[in-house]
């Protein structure tokens, strides 16, 4: 998902999609169906302030003034805090729209977000026709990785790298984040390596994703979205669990913001056709 220049063949009003998530806030500037810039910031402080900041950063990178934006579409937990939004949509619909744009062949999507993991099925037009979510527990979400990385005293990139060097299978027997955390502490005390522990945690989270896909009834192709998909070890574990290669966006965190931007563009187009 790379930025590109505005199309110079004619005026293409820019729009912006904003996804205010519980951990990260994302913005994508779109013009003529092409991504021209994006920004990602941690959701710290107030949603309203971070929404303003992520929009400003994305606009600055695009070289577009706020007054030249034709539409702002918001999604995510903090969607209501995007003061400039002219529309809002559920993050699930935005995820679907974003994935359909990036991978038109995708019919099953696994979204590993900070709040929960979910799987959903798309029709050919990018509409979500069925979805299932993990239970309300950090053990089923991307948050688990951050918790375990903290216990292992490494960052997420390092945890990803270590897991690729795992030599021994270490399994975790619980689906609860708190219990997994204490199990990790026990495994460290037992002398298990960080590499094997990290790989075991990825497998545990991948198993959750796999069970969701099974509940949903899998249909190829399968794509990933959400911050968890940035982690190559987790992606590999999911591929092994589901039994197929999965499609992964370059910036999986941006999928919902991209979908929101596409919806903003739709609205602008409808407005123009009516006028």
């Amino acid at each position: 998902m790379s930025a590109s220049d505005n199309d110079s063949s004619g005026y293409r009003p820019a729009v912006i999609g904003v996804d205010i998530g519980s951990s990260f806030s994302k913005a994508v500037v779109l013009s003529g169906g092409t991504i021209i810039s994006w920004a990602i910031l941690p959701s710290v402080g107030s949603y309203r302030a971070v929404a303003d900041e992520v929009i400003n950063q994305a606009l600055a990178r695009a070289g577009v003034a706020a007054e030249d934006i034709a539409g702002v579409s918001a999604t995510g937990y903090g969607a209501a805090s995007v003061a400039s939004a002219s529309q809002s949509s559920s993050d699930l619909s935005c995820q679907g729209r974003g994935i359909a744009y990036l991978f038109p062949s995708a019919r099953t999507v696994v979204d590993i977000g900070a709040q929960f993991t979910r799987a959903f099925r798309l029709d050919g037009a990018g509409h979500v026709v069925a979805f299932v979510l993990s239970e309300k527990c950090a053990g089923g979400s991307g948050r688990l990785l951050a918790i375990i990385a903290r216990v292992l005293q490494i960052d997420l990139d390092e945890m990803d790298r270590l897991a690729r060097e795992s030599k021994k299978k270490v399994d975790f027997t619980t689906s609860c984040a708190v219990f997994t955390e204490s199990e990790v502490v026990s495994r460290i005390a037992e002398g298990e390596s960080r590499e094997d522990i990290a790989a075991g945690v990825y497998r545990a989270l991948a198993a959750k994703a796999q069970s969701l896909v099974e509940r949903l009834k899998f249909a190829p192709d399968c794509a990933l979205a959400g911050g968890g998909a940035k982690n190559t070890s987790l992606v590999k574990s999911i591929e092994e669990g589901v039994g197929v290669d999965v499609l992964v966006p370059d910036e999986p965190q941006l999928v919902a913001a991209l979908g929101a931007a596409l919806m903003a563009e739709d609205k602008v187009a409808v407005g123009k056709s009516r006028s």
Partner: peptide, 21 residues
Amino acid sequence: EADTRARIDAFIDTLEAVKSR
């Protein structure tokens, strides 16, 4: 409440998509 309503929103979108199809 935010989580519950986000789920409801997503479900409504799904209903709309299925009805449209």
